[in-house]
Structure formats: C-alpha cells, structure tokens
Write a protein that binds this DNA or RNA. Structure first.
Length: 453
RNA sequence: GCGAUUGUAGCUCAGUUGGUUAGAGCGCCGGUUUGUGGUACCGGAGGUCGAGGGUUCGAACCCCUUCAAUCGCCCCA
C-alpha cells in the first residue's frame, strides 16, 4: 500500500439511542437492586417467572388501550418473516396476563409472580429514561381482597428500605374506584373541564378527549386553578369501593407503612381500578416515580380471559440503582490478594499461586506483566488486603524464590483468615519449610525451596 | 413529538478576535531514581476537534444539516 492510499476507514457502529452499557460501580448498583428484589420476593413467596421479550402486538394494544401514548407511538413493533405483527414488550403486566390465560395458571390462583428484565419504549431519552430500560415486577393474580394490595405495598416498602433509599421517597396512594365509580368520575371530569376548555393548556385540551384523568396531574400553571376545584373521586366511590380503600389504608397503617393520600394520582394505562400508588422521590428530576402500580381487575377480560382480579407493581431498576449509587451504598468489593511476580521466571508460579487461592474462594489479581519495577505500584493501586510478592533476589543455592507478604488492611482478623488459605495453597504448590503467620503492619519473608510437581 | 444546553486524547477539561505542527492534568506504555517498595523525574504512544456540507487566503472557533448526551415539556417505572 502506498503512502498516499489510506486504508478504507471502518466506521464503528454507534450504540442505539437510549440504550446503555452499564459498567463498574453502576453495574454493581444495578445488580444490587436485582439481588435485593430476588431475596425479598422469596421472603414474600412470589414465584419467579421468565417471560418472552416479545409478544403479538395485540397483547399490548388490547390491554393498554389503543389511545394510550405507549401503544400509539412508543412501541417497537415489526413484522416477522411470517407477516405477524410482533412488539418488544413495553411493560410486563400484559404479557403476564396473557401467560396466565394461555398456560392455565388459574389452577394456582391466587398466584404471586415476580420477574425482571428489559423493556422497550420509543421515547425521548433522558436521565432515568431509556429506550431499553429494566424493571423489577411483582404481581398477584386472582386475588380480589385488599390484603393482596397491602402485601405488595409492604413488600415494596421493605425493598426500598433494604436498599437504603427510603429516605426522601414517599408512598402516594389513591383509589380509582371500581369500574362504575371510575366511569362516573371520568364523565364528571370531562363535563367539568369542558366548561373551561378554552383556558386550559394545549396539552390538557388534547388530554380532555384522550385521557381526561391526566389533566389532574398537569404541571402547567394554566391548568392548576381548575384542577383544584375539579370533581373528586371520593364523591363518586361506591360504598364497596370506599370499604376496599379503607381496608387498604387501615392495613398499611397497621403494618407501619407511611403513605400520603394523593387524590390527583391517576394511572396512565386503561386497565387500572381501585388502588393506585407511586413511590416518588424528588431526587431524580422529572423522572421522580421510582415504583408504581395498582389494581387491574379489568385486564384479563380485555385479553379474552375470565374476569380475574389482580394487582401489581413495577419499578425502574436504573432509577433505583441511581438512588442506591447516590446514597453511596455500593462499591465494588475489595480485592483480597494481589500476587506480584518480580522476576520473569516466576510469572508462571505467581499465576499458579493465584489460581490456587481462587479455588479456595479468595479473590485474586495476578500482576505478572509489564515493567518489573512498576508491578508493586500497580498492585498497591488495586487496593488489596494483602500483597504477595515473589522474587528471586539474593537467593542462596538451591532456593527457588522469596515470598514476601504485605498487609494493606487495618483489619487484622481479615488478614489472618486469609493467611490460612494462603498457607494451604502454598503447601500444595510449593515445598515450604516453616509455617508462617501474617501480622498487621509487618512484612514477612519466606524462602521457597522449589516448586511442587 | 416540542424547547434549551453541550459535544476537543481512554477520562476530566483548557484552547484569547478566525491565523504556525491543537494543549494540560489524570490514566496507559517505557526508562531513571527510591529499595521493604504507594514517591519523584524523564520519555513515548494516543486526536479526521461528534459527523457531513458551506463561508473564508485560512475554521476546533462563523453558518446550515445531522447524530448523540444532558435538562425541561410530553409520557411513564
């Protein structure tokens, strides 16, 4: 190739907008959220479900409502090679409901289900809002009693507390009433807002036809004066719906879960009834909802199933992980041992020592490449509890290597626990004459006579 | 889908009014020093200034388009 001819430039494909590559401490925070959820859902005896990432488009369009933003403009839908319209799941609940019907899970009812994984919505990305995002999800299907709502809420409360992020997060609670209450309230809201339509914001004028409940939580100052005097759900609740909500709030109080009534709290999706709730923080800007859900007694019928009461919630793992990271709750775990080879001929032995220690459950990084004199400094930067240095300086005849041990931890018991593992491993790998101990603040030298076979 | 801000080395950022071969710190690689070691010093690699087009004798800088991130709206977990 001549100098004037440049090789064709190979362009690196960009990551898809709204997707993330999560690494290091952020990935640890993410894993921490999932691990805590997995632990707690077992305590509450929720059964693990693995779900397909895509479904027939009708699973979502029928259950969420054709007019919702999620269905009308945010779904990743495509035709497969057979001409079927499929959609990457934008939420868990609809797919779980479909699975409940098609797999005959009625036989387990009431069944408590938990899952987590990626979801997809074509939205404008922002902090805490991605096109591929991840949720943990818990549902109780086939339980009509308010105790199911309460169990889910107490479980969510426990999760947030165990993640160490409950401070500054409040549980906002509302009821949408049963189907009849909800419809009556909705009709009253439309009638009320229609009288003031000209004074409402453009967004709310649009919402009036599509989703009038949403006007209630509008942030536009032009809407505020009217939302204050808008019809209240409490005036439209049937006595059954009132009793239901009273039982939920009473049981929450008994369980010691703090909540506030949020009469303007509504759900975006059509299938919700009765209890609606959000755990909200002011620490994530516009994406303040950290966990949300409610009761969806109408959903199963929209998918052709028998009427089936159900409640559930979902929480954004990224949002929880951000709060966990901000609270300084998660660090990558500290390295136990760094093994440093300070002679090229000992690199293999250093690796062998490392492998042996790892088989004993000790975390190890081996440094056996690069400039010999800079390896110790590299080891220090890894911040291990112990550094093991192998070198061959000043060896007497027949000797194989020197081993030096330096403790970087102030916790002596950690070091001595590790010493047992190290000694055992050394005895497997090398002939060692004297037993040794590791003492804090002191380095020990050990002569190794020859490698074991 | 709408509005605003930002985009320069692996990372964090300088870069004057448009003017030589685009810089620093950290990180990375190598060397010297130190020698029970984490220091200091020296050197090196690494950039089509997000991308494409335009204006100009000359563009990281001005204009247009586009991509992306961030903040808000919308929506939602």
């Amino acid at each position: 190739m001549s100098k004037s001819e440049k090789p064709a430039r190979i362009e690196t494909p960009q990551a898809i907008r709204g997707t993330q590559d999560i690494f290091g401490a952020d990935a640890e925070a993410f894993a921490r959220v999932v691990e805590s959820f997995e632990r707690i859902r077992r305590l509450y005896r929720f059964r693990r479900v693995e779900m397909p990432v895509f479904e027939k488009t009708t699973v979502f369009s029928r259950s969420l409502g054709e007019t919702t933003d999620v269905v009308s403009k945010e779904m990743y839908s495509f035709e497969d090679r057979g001409g079927e319209s499929l959609t990457l799941r934008p939420e868990f609940t609809a797919g779980l409901a479909r699975a409940y019907i098609t797999n005959g899970w009625q036989q387990y009812a009431p069944v408590k289900l938990a899952t987590h994984g990626p979801l997809f919505r074509y939205e404008r990305p922002q902090k805490g809002r991605y096109r591929q995002f991840h949720q943990i999800d818990a549902e109780v299907i086939g339980a009509a009693e308010p105790t199911a709502d309460v169990e889910l809420l107490v479980m969510a409360d426990q999760l947030l507390k165990e993640l160490g992020i409950a401070d500054g997060v409040t549980l906002q609670l509302n009821t949408l009433g049963d189907g009849e209450s909800r419809e009556a309230w909705r009709a009253a809201l439309i009638e009320y807002f229609r009288e003031h339509k000209a004074s409402l914001s453009e967004d709310s004028q649009d919402r009036l036809e599509r989703n009038p409940l949403r006007i209630l939580d509008s942030k536009d100052p032009r809407d505020k004066p009217f939302t204050v005097d808008a019809p209240k759900i409490d005036d439209y609740l049937s006595s059954e719906a009132q009793d239901f909500f009273a039982k939920v709030t009473g049981d929450l109080d008994a369980a010691g879960v703090a909540w506030v009534r949020a009469p303007a709290l509504v759900r975006g999706l059509d299938y919700y009834r009765h209890t609606a709730f959000e755990f909200v923080t002011d620490r994530l800007g516009a994406q303040g909802t950290v966990l949300g859900g409610g009761r969806y007694d109408g959903l199963m019928e929209s998918l052709g199933g028998a009427p089936t009461p159900a409640v559930g919630w979902a929480a954004g793992i990224e949002r929880l992980a951000m709060l966990v990271a901000d609270a300084g709750q998660v660090k990558e775990s500290r390295l136990n041992v760094a093994v440093v080879s300070e002679a090229a001929g000992l690199d293999q032995s250093a690796c062998a020592l490392g492998f042996g220690l790892r088989r004993k459950g000790v975390s190890v990084d081996v440094i056996a490449s690069g400039g010999v004199k800079k390896r110790f400094a590299k080891a220090v930067k890894l911040n291990p509890q112990l550094i093991l240095v192998l070198d061959d300086r000043g060896l007497s005849a027949g000797a194989f290597a020197n081993l030096r041990v330096k403790s970087l931890t102030s916790n002596q018991s950690v070091a001595t626990d590790l010493a047992d593992d190290i000694l055992q491993t050394l005895e497997q790998k090398f002939y060692v004459d004297d037993s040794f101990t590791i003492e804090h603040g002191r380095e020990l030298q050990l002569r190794i006579d020859s490698p074991a076979q």
